[in-house]
Design a protein around this nucleic acid. Sequence first.
DNA 1: CGGCATCCTTCAAGATACTG
DNA 2: CAGTATCTTGAAGGATGCCG
Lengths: 260, 260
Amino acid sequence: MSKKRLFDDPCGIARALNAVGERWALLVVRELVFGPKRYSDLHRGLPQMSQNVLAQRLRELEADGLVRRRRLGPPAPAAVYELTERGQELEPVLRALAHWGSRAPLPEDGAAELSVDALLFALRATFDPALAGELSLRCQLDVAGDRFRITVAGGRLELDRGEHAEPEAWLTVPEAATLRDLVFAGAALHDAVERADTEVAGDTARLAALLRCFPAAVRYPAPQDPGPPDPVSPGPVSPGPESPNAEHPDPAVSARSRRG
Amino acid sequence: MSKKRLFDDPCGIARALNAVGERWALLVVRELVFGPKRYSDLHRGLPQMSQNVLAQRLRELEADGLVRRRRLGPPAPAAVYELTERGQELEPVLRALAHWGSRAPLPEDGAAELSVDALLFALRATFDPALAGELSLRCQLDVAGDRFRITVAGGRLELDRGEHAEPEAWLTVPEAATLRDLVFAGAALHDAVERADTEVAGDTARLAALLRCFPAAVRYPAPQDPGPPDPVSPGPVSPGPESPNAEHPDPAVSARSRRG
DNA sequence: CGGCATCCTTCAAGATACTG
DNA sequence: CAGTATCTTGAAGGATGCCG
């Protein structure tokens, strides 16, 4: 149990990175922000993370008081991991990263699935009150069997696991990619319904309005600085906002590969 | 120039970490938030970072469009690194991390110096409007020769490199640790002045009030969960001592080692 | 001297297999 | 299901060399 490699720097940023700066650590926290999960669920949400590293990160996060291991049962002797209070306080960090990262380029090989929790957290992080305006809606969401409740009111969005007592709209999608395309790739709701992989009910007009409250992420242009003697020009990184669509290179992946 | 190790995950958090998740990357950004710096200044602010890693991080940050290398001169052929617009947009991320990390435990061996920019950014991140109340002040700050201007008004704090046209108060400290003790360790202003390592002028009453607007960082308590029958993990990491203050082990290091 | 590039060592991360 | 054990790869750390 060798001591973890730490920044010897009293700066708060360095101290934070001492706790969550190791590779995968913040993604593990991301998988837990919506509630406790078992080891295998964590592994499902982060399939590219090797298991020994996952186990090690969990031990470190537990030692630092960000994650708590709880044993359920005895009927079903399953262990779950959940964020402590201290761990939940990382949400502003995740939110800031997700907001910034939503304008970062996608990795080239779009082979990876988007985990359900990752997608839902992206909604939390990229909700734009200006786009919401006066919209008010209680929506019940089902993504591949995971149920979430969304509440929009007063320019604010709440999003948690659970059930609304009296939803005004329902949206059921078979997998995360379907919702991803609806929200971030501008896929039309009625198209998804016609392909029969999506179900809607209730106030579909306001539901469609809700889906438009999340500004689509765009690739920002490469640091092409073709050498003008422009010492401090504001221009070069302007993310060419005149391309409101053209997001995911393959919006056709939506319908397929229903999991067993 | 082997390709960087990337998360193949379309989640915004993962995409952000692909840009700034490597070790030291965010600390390099921290050193640049207050303005351009030369390579050697960066190295001074991050003495524990080996130079090859610094050069590599700078190349990666430049390739990702977060940092721009600019050549000054020709009279003085010095190169400086500065944040692009995109890089400056990381400030909310740094702020969230610094705020969270200000309540994380200090590394055991407090041997490290706090870089000037790190300390000043900590002020930005931990300023508490509630503690400021109706305080209003323009203060000129000199930390080891680096000059900053602070403006507090309407429960907001601005802090940048530069000079106030008409400051209402002045504070001059010989090194970062002195200001650190004044702000975060509760050192008294008049004591510092009497030790002759600190100079104040102008409205010292409001200056003292300003210094009290930054809640001191404390070690957060161990994951004490005394309630449920938790058979596993007896919580061996409890840092134990309930010393509510006693922050910096050696508040006597303030006066000494003026750099040539 | 500032600004890196190179070489070598060490240790974390990645992949796979295996066990209670 | 929930991890641990083992092996390989590759990034970080440290020293030194080089070049304008």
